[in-house]
């Protein structure tokens, strides 16, 4: 329980990464997200920019950085579609903020917590996306919660692999 409820922020370590990694990893995530569905078709049930946003938000434990990363990644993700720019931006901005806020309070080194957080934030991102599309914009869109659940599972699995991989790039003091 101590891992889940840290007593103070001093007990938690803020991870630092090389500066190019903050640019390179989201760009790679965007490229792969645009590239892989060509080969995987309907089996492309994942959202790599969201996973990267969650990771950096949890690791940096900075809501501002998390929000900006989520905002930029979301906007670029929207820019690659024919949809209005800002839908994914708003959703990932909220997710980045919440992930960083949660990362301040709990230990995110545990893989199970990482998987669970990814699953929850993926569903939250989908919900925000749907809310914006339906409520704010008032447009119709086909929606399947099963697909969103599978996407959440896929993001969790990818996070299970990607997070330890990105941990290797941490700058140790």
């Amino acid at each position: 329980m101590s891992a889940l409820t840290a007593r103070s922020r001093r007990d938690l370590e803020i991870h630092r990464y090389p500066a190019p990694l903050y640019v390179l990893v989201p760009v790679i995530a965007l490229v792969l997200q645009a590239l892989l569905p060509r080969f995987m078709g309907r089996f492309a049930l994942f959202d790599l920019p969201l996973v990267v946003t969650i990771y950096f938000a949890l690791s940096r434990r900075s809501p501002v950085q998390g929000m900006f990363m989520g905002c930029l990644v979301g906007i670029f993700e929207d820019a690659l579609t024919q949809h209005a720019i800002g839908i994914n931006g708003i959703a990932k901005t909220v997710v980045g903020f919440l992930a960083a806020s949660v990362g301040i309070r709990i230990d995110v080194e545990n893989n199970a917590i990482r998987v669970m957080l990814n699953f929850v934030f993926s569903l939250l991102c989908s919900a925000i996306y749907l809310f914006i599309y339906h409520v704010l914009l008032g447009m119709n869109i086909e929606w399947s919660w099963v697909s969103e659940l599978l996407k959440a599972v896929g993001n969790s699995i990818i996070a299970l692999v990607l997070f330890p991989l990105l941990d290797r790039f941490q700058i140790r003091d």
């Binding site: 809501p63 501002v64 929000m67 914009l137």
Partner: peptide
């Protein structure tokens, strides 16, 4: 943090409003 979030959300909502 909340102010930044609010600014970002408002900016993007405005941007969405421009596009529709």
């Amino acid at each position: 943090n909340l102010l930044v979030l609010l600014v970002l959300l408002v900016a993007q909502i405005i941007g969405l409003a421009v596009q529709v």
